[in-house]
Nucleic acid binder design. Structure first.
Lengths: 194, 194
DNA sequence: CAGGGAGGTTAGCGGTCGTTAACCTTAGGG
DNA sequence: CCCTAAGGTTAACGACCGCTAACCTCCCTG
């Protein structure tokens, strides 16, 4: 399990603050001095931990995409025996957890992808595509009548729905999670029953 | 009606290209020279039409918010007699039209708001809030059991769903529009029937 | 207890960006 | 036929930004 109880490393502090700032003001809108100030060191000190500003964004985006995909694969393996419906619910739940717990990251995820170097962008895109295709596969098991392109569009749209958390009020985590879950299922059902 | 058949003015060309570039690379990621080049003039020439780069973004965002709200008010007035269900469908249709026809604008709309001067941002926020509240009112007419905070969250989430068009493939406009419409109704229904 | 690496600091360089200044060209009206 | 306004141009300025250089200070270890 490796539940983390230790204090966060400096690197992790930097990544967390950088994510927050990038999400708030955009990658180009944040200077390295601000990121440094956010963790109590000053600008150039960051270069002891990262080769450059781009590298921070790259690590963030690859990390998000990878952990989304890894979590989804795990859920597919664990809940697969319980049927496609259960897996779909589990995927939705996982994505909602992520959107609620790491709002800055979910914002960056679909907003700053184009600021990456080619190699990093390709990697992120590949992880994202695998994540989408995993959802598409499960969705089409639940609703076999849905053609693949429609399923893919539906998945992207539901991501848009779930990723709307930054715009939502804060009426308690469980309430929001439940609402989002029901809406996602409702949206999928509307595609499946067409 | 004033249907526009005349050629677009230079100002309009600039706004259109600026919207595209801002959506692609972010407000801070685009230089004035690039915007100029996109309309065939060079950097500082833009200042004959706008007082500054910020003013272009401001005009774009206020314009979007205003036209969304105006369209929604018109639909409410025109289709109100046909009942709340019909108005809701009309609102959804209008938002989808917008998301499909002006993808760069819909992207900017929820992404670059914080780059505005205080006065402009307040104005945009107010227009957006009115737009949301109009939807909330109609939604609660269709589903009276839904409490106001839940309705507001639901509306924001459906906006997230409808605004996902930039991530979608292009399988023909009508097909996409129909899919999005059904999903939006399905998501709302799931909230209403809870 | 020397010494070296880890992790800071400040100064400053080179490039870019938004903006202004100064100047030029053209079309239309008195 | 001038003259003015509209709409361009290039040059350049000042600010800022990412990053490097040079230096300092601990702490850990052989």
């Amino acid at each position: 399990m490796a539940t983390r109880t230790d204090a966060p490393t400096r690197r992790e502090q930097i990544l967390k603050e950088a994510a927050r700032l990038f999400a708030e003001r955009g990658f180009h809108g944040v200077g390295v001095d601000e990121i440094g100030a956010a963790v109590g060191i000053s600008g150039p000190g960051l270069y002891r931990h990262f080769p450059g500003k781009d590298a921070m964004l790259a690590e963030l985006l690859v990390g998000i995409s990878d952990s989304l995909l890894t979590g989804a694969k795990r859920r597919l393996a664990e809940d697969g025996a319980a049927g496609a419906e259960a897996v779909l619910d589990s995927l939705i739940e996982g994505h909602i957890d992520f959107a609620l717990d790491d709002r800055p990251l979910i914002t960056l995820h679909d907003r700053e992808l184009d600021r990456l170097r080619d190699a990093d962008r390709k990697m992120v895109r590949q992880l994202q595509r695998q994540y989408v295709e995993l959802w598409v596969g499960v969705l089409r098991e639940v609703y076999p009548a849905v053609a693949e392109p429609a399923a893919r569009s539906a998945v992207h749209s539901v991501f848009g729905l779930l990723n709307s958390t930054p715009h939502l009020g804060r009426p308690g985590r469980a309430v929001t999670a439940s609402l989002l879950h029901r809406m996602a299922r409702g949206a999928f059902a509307a595609v499946g029953e067409a």
